[in-house]
């Protein structure tokens, strides 16, 4: 490759990165700006939008809902997803591949379709009242595949002789899981849990359709955009950004460790 075309590729790459990250940077920037218009000039640096946000009881409710949902989702999807992945990994490929595709179908479908389907299912078919519980079920649907895929991929390089060794030394399958399998794949499982956390925290569509009353952080932001477009939205967005980005970074770090 000659020099000028190399420069061309670099330039193009830089443009793409700038185009994709500028909105994020602006959101963070404006969340600290004096101006109420989300526009330049943004005036001086201030923390007042955060103060305003933290004084808002609706925000705290939404925040608490988000954490409750994410907490349950992380624990349940990590637990069930890990078990599913371990089982799938020991199956014959002719059996495990179709099952894997079926289990991962939810992430291949448009979230809007899932959201509408869930709403109809809950209300028309099951007749269950919409609540945080229904939101949690919806989130499990889309976080589970991530956990399954991540843990399943790890098991491809797992040394099953270790499990045979543990059984040989007198451990039943549960003790083998706790003392051998889990400690060895621990970092992968933590990584998968953090990804589930990130997905759940900023999930909007399914939450919006199945929560009925109440808010999570994303639906709270959406509500504010429709009524009062003020920089507290930027403050919430920044908080969400920090939460999801940091959990994803930790997830990547932790799962790279011992990969």
């Amino acid at each position: 490759m000659n020099r000028s075309s190399e420069w061309g590729w670099w330039g193009f790459g830089t443009l793409v990165v700038v185009f994709m990250t500028t909105p994020l940077i602006l959101v963070v920037l404006f969340s600290f700006g004096e101006s109420a218009l989300t526009n330049f000039p943004m005036g001086g640096i201030t923390g007042k939008w955060y103060d305003e946000l933290f004084a808002n009881r609706e925000f705290w409710k939404a925040f608490r809902n988000s954490l409750t949902i994410a907490g349950v989702v992380v624990v349940v999807s990590t637990g069930i997803g890990t078990m599913a992945a371990l089982t799938l990994a020991r199956m014959r490929p002719t059996l495990s591949q179709p099952l894997l595709i079926a289990l991962c179908l939810p992430v291949m479908m448009p979230p809007l379709v899932i959201a509408i389907a869930l709403l109809v299912y809950y209300v028309r078919w099951v007749g269950v009242e919409l609540s945080l519980f229904t939101v949690i079920l919806g989130h499990l649907l889309v976080t589970q595949p991530f956990v399954i895929l991540i843990v399943y991929a790890r098991m491809a390089t797992f040394n099953y002789e270790l499990i045979d060794s543990a059984r040989d030394l007198g451990a039943n399958s549960w003790i083998t899981f706790l003392t051998v399998t889990l400690p060895i794949i621990r970092s992968t499982v933590i990584g998968a849990a953090l990804i589930a956390l990130a997905v759940s925290l900023d999930e909007f569509l399914i939450t919006f359709f199945t929560i009925s009353g109440g808010n999570t952080l994303p639906t709270f932001v959406f509500g504010k955009i429709r009524t009062e477009m003020d920089p507290t939205i930027n403050a919430i967005a920044t908080i969400l950004l920090v939460l999801t980005v940091s959990s994803t970074i930790i997830a990547m770090k932790v799962s790279r460790y011992r990969a």
Binding site: E161, D164, S165, A166, D168, P183, I184
Partner: peptide, 13 residues
């Protein structure tokens, strides 16, 4: 019975 495995099967952790 106890087995010495071909790949040894030592617990890495």
């Amino acid at each position: 019975t106890n087995m010495v495995f071909q790949g040894y099967g030592l617990f890495p952790h």
